[in-house]
Design a protein around this nucleic acid. Structure first.
Lengths: 338, 338
DNA sequence: TTGTATGCGTTATCAC
DNA sequence: GTGATAACGCATACAA
């Protein structure tokens, strides 16, 4: 097994200088027919590929985009990564991936490990403020936050309008005649509050009563765990809205296990419109937050920043849309047997 | 904004040579109290971090592990990535991620882009043979295949025993009294056949009749699409086994839409034990293929290869386990209303 | 225990 | 058009 060919090998084989080969490889210059042919042949024959590390040393570019995900098992983030992956691939960039939940190191160490290997970063807007400050001060590379607004003004971000999304879902429930609503939030994400306030806004002027709960992690297990507290509360809710679909899935399963009929006795809804909401019984009403589109937008935004585009908005808003399914209905309606 | 500190800056600030700083940073040598203190202080004050690109040029190591996933939206692969991510993080390595389904480039180009940026690769065993050959010849870096056995002998791989898994599920169905079984396979994955043969083996010596179908992609939509062909076939199956849980999810949804009662009229089961199988109605019987453990094992195996461990088995087998749930039952049993 | 010198593979600058 | 050469930031053999 021989070592990989270098630019010098090519230069030698083609009887030109390394500088010429470099210019040829990177395009943007004209060459004599002769030289062009020789270089092409040499590259072909030696199987030469330019070493991105060496190039990076000079240009300061790695060809990688860094992406830090809070928990890849959440289908919302999975789709997000998929969208970002597509945009990166189209631009010829690689994706350097880190799962914050899996790293035993604190977020800061994680970013420090990622940073020197990437040209820019896509990170969650629910990063600790101290980490964001560090990024702002030390990362001389563009950063795009996702989820909600960046934790500090002046930073780039991509996400949906969470207040509007909450409002949208709230109106849906209001139209169904629900008046006792419980929200199971995830306080660690700042925009959980936005969803909650949007929800409340939808009931402004009505005699509706809204309650707020909170879970320590936005996962199905927590939804199951908190279900009894929510449903057997002094105020029995007519509708339960969860911060995301995973929580909603857990809530719904446990609600049924507790003997509640969904949606006849209690409507349940979430956010994100994950694929599996279609396959539950009843199927899950949700607000589609454009997971994949958000990932794609985040990557494109970052690429724009890298390209030096100056007309980039600080925040990019992704459209959301209500996806009404069977888990929400006017009380007592339907047969309960699909 | 000042540029990032280099080893020279540190050396200068500490009044030592760059070589000394390098040795200090990379450990494995003793220093005088004095020098140690000065270097530590300088590093601290300048916020120095060694540049992995520059280091990589010398050592030939990037600090990255490459991972090529067929479709990150499949929860099986998501868990796989999670496991690999954990193992990589523990070893202080980053994960360079690529989604083959999202790349418009052919697999080969994808690998070529990844290869120079990583120390080793984790790739699906269902890569085209031509690509594997190329890898074998040109990638002078260790590769670990996942899913099933490597496409060529002599290559490292990690995966479960697919034949045994099929057998396990087959016995379960046999014990439930089923005799007309349909398998919805995914021929593009070579081990789909292993599952099928394991399934068949479970019914050897009985008068059972087994049918085989095939889908072009192992996703829920394909399960829905093929459901009517499978269920309304000349031989109405008592049980349908799908290549994976996504297919099973789609099959089950469509089966119910077609008016079939699951599991009273037809049992349905899959492979992988994805999290969402718990939240369907009925909950989905599956064979847990140890998705996350496989990812972790693949990464560890790769790390072992990188560390030059010589006692590494060529193939590592991950344990599987049957997870019986409500979607499989003896015919006519149960009430159908949980 | 510490320092000197060299080279990793590439691009950029400037000369020809 | 093409070539010489100096960086880029670091690790390592070897010298002291």
């Amino acid at each position: 097994m021989r070592k990989a060919a270098t630019i010098r090998d090519v230069a030698h084989a083609a009887a030109v200088s390394t500088a010429t080969v470099s210019k040829f490889v990177n395009g943007g210059q004209r060459f004599s027919r002769e030289v062009e042919a020789r270089i092409t042949a040499a590259i072909q024959q030696l199987g030469y590929r330019t070493n991105p590390l060496a190039r990076g040393m000079i240009t300061g570019r790695t060809g990688n985009l860094g992406i830090v995900i809070m928990d890849i098992r959440n289908p919302h983030f999975t789709s997000f990564v998929k969208g970002a992956s597509r945009a990166a691939a189209e631009a010829g960039m690689n994706l350097l991936f880190a799962d914050a939940a899996e790293s035993r190191a604190p977020e800061l160490a994680l970013l420090q490990a990622l940073l020197p290997q990437v040209d820019g970063l896509i990170v969650s807007a629910r990063m600790p403020v101290a980490v964001v400050e560090w990024l702002r001060e030390w990362a001389r590379k563009p950063v795009v936050f996702y989820g909600g607004l960046a934790p500090r003004p002046g930073l780039h971000s991509v996400g949906c309008d969470n207040h509007a999304s909450g409002l949208m879902l709230g109106r849906h429930l209001r139209e169904l005649g629900h008046r006792r609503i419980s929200y199971v939030g995830f306080g660690a994400a700042p925009w959980s509050k936005d969803r909650w306030e949007g929800l409340r806004a939808a009931f402004q002027g009505t005699k509706a009563s809204l309650q707020c709960f909170d879970v320590p992690a936005p996962v199905a297990e927590e939804g199951e765990r908190i279900a009894s507290s929510v449903l057997l509360d002094a105020q029995t809710p007519e509708a339960v809205v969860a911060y995301n679909d995973l929580l909603a899935l857990g809530l719904m399963a446990e609600a049924r296990a507790l003997g509640f009929r969904v949606p006849q006795q209690v409507s349940i809804a979430g956010f994100d419109n994950i694929a599996y909401g279609r396959y539950t019984t009843p199927s899950l009403t949700s607000v589609d937050t454009g997971s994949e589109a958000t990932g794609e937008a985040a990557a494109r935004h970052l690429l724009g920043l890298l390209a030096g585009e100056s007309d980039l908005a600080l925040h990019e808003t992704i459209a959301t849309r209500l996806v009404p399914r069977d888990s929400t209905a006017a009380r007592g309606s339907g047969s309960g047997k699909p």
